[in-house]
Amino acid sequence: MDLNTITAVARPTTRSELPAWTAGDAWLAGGTWLFSEPQADLHRLIDLAALGWPALTIDTNGLSIAATCSVAELDAVACPPDWLAAPLINQCCRAFLASFKIWKTATVGGNICMSLPAGPMISLTSALDGICTIWQPDGGERTVAMLDFVTGNHANLLKGGELLRQIDIPLAALKRRSAFRQISLTPVGRSAALVIGTLGLDGAVALTVTASTKRPIRLSFKKVPDSSELREAIGQAIPDDLYHDDIHGKPFWRKHMTLRLAREICEELE
């Protein structure tokens, strides 16, 4: 869609060239949502492509994902064999309600910053203890745990002029065993519930609930919980008003499926 209110496009090549943020500005990465509907309040786009951030970096600390990394680039990453959680990358990429064309354009950072409950990049990076690096307009930066970054449906901790630079996944999280469950109302529909479980070497289990809830929820257990312990923990951690309600699933059904998928994950990890 043409954005006929845009009067300027900035293309910085370094951080120092980023223009001062003003009302009517928007960051442009993949643009798959930005160009999908009218944006009457926008007047300038700040294109991040020329900043040239490396899409993915693998080192002794783990995996660093640039906000401008495309879904296709992330899906194609070759992970070390001892990263037992690596299958989650492909599983979450395939949880998108998107074609291969969108995969090549849509960015990890864009999906996270949209902050929709069904954002699979939120699911992935939350489950793997991702840490967001945020550039501030005054030249500083701050870090936020991915679990805390999204605060609600289409809401997050970004302030005016702040920019998500990257998400760092720690090595320890990548070496945990994992299990993935996702369900939609239709075979290729938007996720109505997406639950990821990870198992540490000490037997500790972490369950991360997304899509069914308005923001990511983490449940932690010292060992694989039994059915009654799991039900009680989910009931305490997720009040009824935290379940998302839209055309892709009613709250009572999302609640039921969250418990069902969590049970399946615990059985698999056990």
Score class of each variant (00 low, 15 high):
residue 3 L to R: 07
residue 8 A to S: 13
residue 8 A to D: 03
residue 9 V to F: 10
residue 12 P to M: 07
residue 13 T to M: 01
residue 20 A to D: 06
residue 21 W to K: 15
residue 21 W to F: 07
residue 22 T to K: 13
residue 23 A to N: 13
residue 26 A to D: 01
residue 26 A to S: 07
residue 28 L to V: 10
residue 32 T to E: 05
residue 33 W to N: 12
residue 39 Q to Y: 14
residue 40 A to P: 14
residue 40 A to F: 13
residue 41 D to P: 03
residue 42 L to G: 04
residue 45 L to R: 14
residue 50 A to K: 11
residue 53 W to P: 01
residue 54 P to H: 06
residue 54 P to L: 00
residue 54 P to Q: 09
residue 58 I to F: 01
residue 59 D to P: 03
residue 61 N to Q: 12
residue 61 N to Y: 03
residue 66 A to E: 12
residue 66 A to G: 06
residue 67 A to F: 07
residue 74 L to I: 11
residue 80 P to S: 05
residue 80 P to N: 05
residue 81 P to I: 11
residue 82 D to F: 05
residue 83 W to G: 11
residue 87 P to G: 05
residue 87 P to C: 10
residue 89 I to H: 01
residue 93 C to Y: 01
residue 95 A to F: 03
residue 96 F to E: 04
residue 98 A to P: 11
residue 99 S to Q: 09
residue 100 F to C: 05
residue 101 K to M: 06
residue 102 I to T: 05
residue 102 I to P: 02
residue 105 T to H: 10
residue 105 T to I: 09
residue 107 T to C: 13
residue 112 I to M: 06
residue 112 I to R: 02
residue 112 I to W: 09
residue 114 M to Y: 11
residue 117 P to N: 12
residue 119 G to P: 09
residue 124 L to E: 02
residue 127 A to D: 05
residue 130 G to H: 02
residue 130 G to T: 00
residue 130 G to F: 01
residue 135 W to P: 00
residue 137 P to H: 08
residue 137 P to S: 03
residue 138 D to R: 02
residue 147 L to F: 01
residue 148 D to Y: 05
residue 150 V to K: 00
residue 151 T to E: 08
residue 158 L to P: 03
residue 160 G to W: 02
residue 160 G to K: 06
residue 161 G to M: 02
residue 163 L to F: 03
residue 164 L to W: 05
residue 169 I to K: 06
residue 170 P to Y: 10
residue 174 L to A: 06
residue 176 R to H: 09
residue 177 R to G: 00
residue 178 S to P: 02
residue 179 A to K: 11
residue 179 A to S: 15
residue 180 F to R: 01
residue 182 Q to K: 06
residue 183 I to V: 15
residue 184 S to C: 12
residue 185 L to H: 08
residue 187 P to A: 13
residue 187 P to Y: 13
residue 188 V to T: 14
residue 189 G to E: 07
residue 189 G to L: 09
residue 189 G to V: 11
residue 189 G to A: 07
residue 190 R to N: 00
residue 193 A to H: 07
residue 195 V to Y: 13
residue 202 D to R: 02
residue 204 A to K: 09
residue 209 V to K: 02
residue 209 V to A: 08
residue 210 T to N: 14
residue 219 L to I: 14
residue 222 K to N: 11
residue 225 P to C: 11
residue 226 D to S: 14
residue 231 R to T: 07
residue 232 E to S: 09
residue 234 I to F: 07
residue 234 I to L: 15
residue 235 G to T: 05
residue 236 Q to D: 12
residue 236 Q to W: 10
residue 239 P to K: 10
residue 246 D to H: 07
residue 248 H to Y: 10
residue 250 K to F: 14
residue 253 W to Y: 15
residue 255 K to E: 10
residue 262 A to C: 04
residue 264 E to F: 06
residue 265 I to A: 00
residue 265 I to T: 00
residue 265 I to R: 04
residue 266 C to P: 11
